[in-house]
Amino acid sequence: MTSEVLVIDDLNKVFSAPTGNVVALEHIQLKVQQGEFITIIGPSGCGKSTLLKIVAGIDTEYEGSVTLHGKPIEGPSIEKGFIFQEPRLFPWLTVEKNIAANLSLKNPEVRKKVDELIELVRLQGFEQSYPRELSGGMAQRVAIARALLRNPDVLLLDEPFGALDAFTRSHLQEVLLDIWQKNRTTMLFVTHDLDEAVFLGQRVIIMNPRPGHIRNILPIGLPFPRKRASHSFQELRHIVLKEFEKVEEPLLDQGAGI
């Protein structure tokens, strides 16, 4: 019971639009264990980003209950780290100052942690660089370090590697797993990449649009580090793919394709 860090109970979210109300999330039930790595996958419009924003406290208009350590989420807080699809760095700050952001590097404790994080995300030598001098993958690593500096209980990632090329993406997936194994931060990772979901998640949550709801939750029992080429990985990938197709088919029947 105590190991449950995040509990979502009967979460509903409706967007009101002039053309009528759109049900973005319907009856979401989810319990996340301490230190668990959850990936959420689904087609666009299935409400996966909305779900993440509610957990982050960016979006506070919803029905149902979302609790972190038993306390309802009322707004953004440093207990919930958030990583956007784009790095969203402050262009006028150097890498180390971006990581520190509103914390002072003059504080020896912050200084020490920033240095450790720079090493963790493998950015040594770039402490004084400005964001414009970084590649997309490097910038996203700065964003990850920035979120980790606040020691979040749960790290929320909204398609963080979606805009990166395949090589950088698989490299960053390994960096992230490395961080997770060292820090045991609970991860909630939204993606539209099937491989990524199976490669990272201990549980893969498959979501279905119109209205957005959880279709299935699949445990991925493979040990880390996972090998993409291994037989068991491909088998599990196939199972998730099949589930995914089940999601897609009725949609296409209704003529409500994307």
């Binding site: 953004p76 784009e86 402050f90 509103n102």
Partner: peptide, 27 residues
């Protein structure tokens, strides 16, 4: 506006919002 979201997530105070985001961005 996207940087405002970052500032919210990182829990900037109102003063930090002015001194660390708005003023440098409008410099």
């Amino acid at each position: 506006g996207k940087l405002f979201d970052v500032a919210r997530v990182l829990h900037f105070t109102k003063w930090q919002l002015i001194s660390k985001l708005i003023v440098p961005a409008s410099l």
